[in-house]
């Protein structure tokens, strides 16, 4: 399943990448692949902006505006004028532990 294309804020700076493999390990949608000695973005549109790659890249080679892809959270954020935040507590993704 795919969501809207060309919307993700994911950015990759190859010059900082050391090829440590972390981003490939953590991305739940296989957005990154190894390309020789460095990582590379394979399929941008699969990115769901969870931020796992960015926070786990020790070399600052990835930037993404991480957040929750949840309509009611974003509407809440609009109403309160703050960051989108879920009030749905433990709701999401049964798939995750």
């Amino acid at each position: 399943m795919r969501y809207l294309s060309n919307v993700t804020t994911l950015e990759f700076f190859p010059e900082k990448c050391t090829g440590c493999f972390r981003c490939i390990e953590v991305c739940p949608h296989q957005v990154f692949i190894m390309n020789g000695k460095k990582a590379a973005i394979d399929d941008r549109d699969l990115c769901m902006e969870c931020g796992a790659c960015m926070i786990n890249c020790a070399f600052g080679a990835i930037s993404v505006n991480a957040g929750v892809g949840c309509a009611s959270a974003i509407i809440n954020g609009m109403i309160t004028g703050g960051e989108p935040s879920c009030d749905c507590s433990s709701g999401s993704t049964s798939s995750c532990c």
Partner: peptide
């Protein structure tokens, strides 16, 4: 149905924001 974006494992914030911009 749009609320279900909060429960999926593949919808990102920018995408949902874009939908809301049109839908609201």
């Amino acid at each position: 149905a749009l609320q279900f974006t909060g429960s999926t494992a593949f919808t990102g914030m920018s995408g949902v924001k874009k939908e809301l911009r049109y839908a609201l």
